[in-house]
Design a protein around this nucleic acid. Structure first.
Lengths: 239, 239
DNA sequence: GAACTCAGTGAACACTGTTCTAGCATGAAC
DNA sequence: GTTCATGCTAGAACAGTGTTCACTGAGTTC
């Protein structure tokens, strides 16, 4: 920081302008800053002005590189899965390969705050993701399931992953600024709510209450993937 | 419409005020208007001012009945499934009962533009929905699957329904203001895109291309539900 | 050294959600 | 039948939003 960072006095505005940034603005730098802002502010408070502020740049400068806010979100979404590698299809082991794919997908979506929300709002058909989808399809087809089912399987699985992460993040967001203690209070509140429902009108809810709050998200996610994989497996014709 | 609907001249503003609406403003009327605005403008252009305009009322009047925009969305969401009835559990027929539940859920979410988006953004745990969830759980448990699986099944199924409808509505939204002809052009464009991928690098995509565009959404939805139900059924211990 | 290109600027536009003060019309109280 | 309180509603205002625009000024090309 030098004294040239100070704002120039008004009578001087038309003579001296701040020197342009040494580092030129690029799409990549904008996306970097956008992630920083997203993590700090969350989806609802994310704004182009915040991104510009983060970069120390005028808002309008962003629009030279990015068409609009939506395109910026798309760029962020596209980066979500870069570098992710899928293994070569192993027909004996396709179920575990798919489960691992799901786990890594969830991990990626948890890397940034509210990323699941952005992801859910975009159709995953960009050129950047094509090789990824290709390898996923390879694994499904290697299992021997009909092509029609394999085509559906990709959609089904990514809908599940994104949907699960979205719900997860909404709970996280709701209790974001709570300390451990109030969170524990809230937890027992929810538990009590289900436990104290009239058992004659809600016998099933009361019976299932423990499973709804006790189980960890990790376990629930795993169970969901297993149900999906079993359903897919049921379509593989016996040899 | 009478001449009293004309705006009063400025010099008269402090004497004559427009008579208050004969029909008092209620939450229900606001939600009605909100749905009208949503259908006309879509989620992105939905605003409190538009709702007020629709009712012929000042914006601030809305805030007497509704805490904020988010609560209004919640009210809209809560209304989505009112009146929907689930049958008594029939253990021999639980699979068809669940499928019917899914179909009706999709139909409801398609009743209003962008409703899937609102639905996805809300956690379905409101008092209004409790009896609904209770009956759904009753059906799952009647099948004989473990309680842990049944608890997961509800989440899994509604995630699928909402996710499917969301993706469906995004495609719909994207091609909303296209006529039949340009839509058909776009369709073949997509088809060609997949067909013209280099077959050595994308053998699976090329092979699956027909299934990705040809199948109707209805059929795809049905297939997805069937995969889910089969996965759930695999957890039922043999008698 | 002059001409040109173009990323970046600040101001502006047309909106948004939300809050505030203040006034109207209705019901109850006397 | 007048007064009072109360609940709804209006209008203006605040602080913010995405996006556009004419205009700089540094760097490159001729």
């Amino acid at each position: 920081m030098s004294e040239t960072d100070l704002p120039s006095p008004p009578w001087d505005r038309n003579r001296r302008r701040p020197a342009p940034a040494k580092v030129p603005l690029t799409r990549d730098r904008i996306v970097d800053a956008a992630y920083t802002v997203l993590d700090r502010e969350g989806y609802d408070r994310f704004s182009m002005r915040q991104v510009a502020l983060e970069l120390g740049v005028a808002v309008s400068a962003l629009y030279v590189h990015v068409a609009n806010k939506d395109e910026l979100f798309e760029l962020m979404y596209n980066r979500t899965f870069v570098g992710e590698e899928l293994p070569d299809p192993d027909p004996e082991n396709w179920q575990e390969q798919i489960k691992e794919f799901a786990r890594r997908g969830r991990a990626r979506l948890r890397q940034h705050r509210d990323l699941a929300r952005i992801s859910m709002a975009h159709i995953p058909f960009t050129p950047e993701l094509l090789p990824h989808v290709e390898r996923l399809m390879a694994i499904f087809r290697s299992s021997g399931m009909p092509d029609l089912v394999a085509a559906m399987a990709g959609d089904l699985l990514s809908t599940y992953i994104e949907g699960f992460c979205l719900e997860e993040s909404m709970w996280l967001e709701r209790y974001r600024d709570m300390d451990e203690e109030t969170w524990e209070t809230k937890r027992t509140e929810i538990m009590n709510y289900f436990a104290e429902l009239p058992p004659d009108r809600f016998p099933n809810m009361v019976a299932m209450a423990p499973y709804m709050v006790d189980e960890s998200n990790d376990y629930r996610f795993e169970l969901g993937v297993d149900i999906l994989v079993r359903g897919l497996a049921s379509y593989i014709p016996a040899r």
